[in-house]
Write a protein that binds this DNA or RNA. Structure first.
Lengths: 146, 146
DNA sequence: ACCAATTCCGAGGAACTTGGTCGGGATTGC
DNA sequence: GCAATCCCGACCAAGTTCCTCGGAATTGGT
């Protein structure tokens, strides 16, 4: 019942992009250094995010990455689904896999569907903008305490 | 983001016990056959459930297993936690692991905590009795359609 | 007293997943 | 032309999952 580092690093990288965005693209090396993630590994992840249309890339010198859409329009669910596959706690609820033969199994399927709905509700309704705002606020209170 | 077969089989086995209980204990072989689960594998799982106080066992001939408590008092969360470990989508929210150094990471931590709360809400508020009832109802409607 | 049914226990192992590394090619600003 | 940077595919070590196997201990029925 864990989200792997793919999802974790992916969310961190996207938040990093949201926080450090300007007109100039952010090179992978900068994200990797700030987030303390292996550059080569992060490359694989961000490549998937690019193919999913969540970030855009600029090649060559002074190149890098930017969010493909405003942070308000990117949900955590988008990121997790891209990097971890379908959000489903069990194979049998992955898509509209119908048809249980046993009534007992159908009953447990209803349970897993409830669980899936609850997970999706959080992940689809939390945007990168919310996370960015949260990070800013935490940073502000930490600064006040100093 | 998947529940492994340990959790899946565990819930199925507990539901099986809830449905086929009487004064006589149910032998492992019967559960394994009905649920189509490897007997040796299921043995490991039910052993953990016993140690967690969710089932009781009777050794020797005519032995077997029974629920240790009424189905109303056993939650799916109890079963999953026993077989899969703490319900936490991320290490950093496993218990009261405090202290993020980076404000950005703290922000993602809040996210994972929201997710964890949502998952727990479902698993802790769903009892084996609910599942049993669901299975009975599904069975009834299936019988009507015949 | 014995036997069959059954739980209990620990070791082992194949297949898959995770979390990377490595090397090199393609593109582009300066 | 050169340095920075993205792009791509192959590879690999360690861990996890999902079991299997063999045997010891317990107990009801005969």
């Amino acid at each position: 019942m864990r989200i792997s580092t793919r999802g974790e690093y992916g969310v961190r990288a996207m938040l990093d992009l949201a926080l450090h965005s300007s007109d100039e693209p952010v090179p992978l090396s900068a994200i990797a250094a700030r987030q303390d993630i292996s550059e080569h590994y992060l490359e694989q992840l961000i490549s998937a995010l690019r193919k999913a249309g969540l970030v855009i890339s600029f090649r060559g010198a002074q190149g890098g990455y930017q969010l493909a859409k405003p942070a308000e329009e990117i949900t955590i669910g988008d990121i997790i689904r891209t990097l971890e596959g379908p959000i489903a706690p069990m194979k049998c609820v992955e898509d509209s896999h119908a048809g249980c033969t046993q009534s007992e199994r159908c009953a447990t399927r209803v349970l897993w569907q409830k669980l899936q709905a609850s997970i999706e509700e959080v992940l689809e309704n939390t945007t990168l903008a919310w996370l960015k705002d949260k990070a800013r606020k935490i940073q502000a209170t930490a600064a006040n305490q100093r």
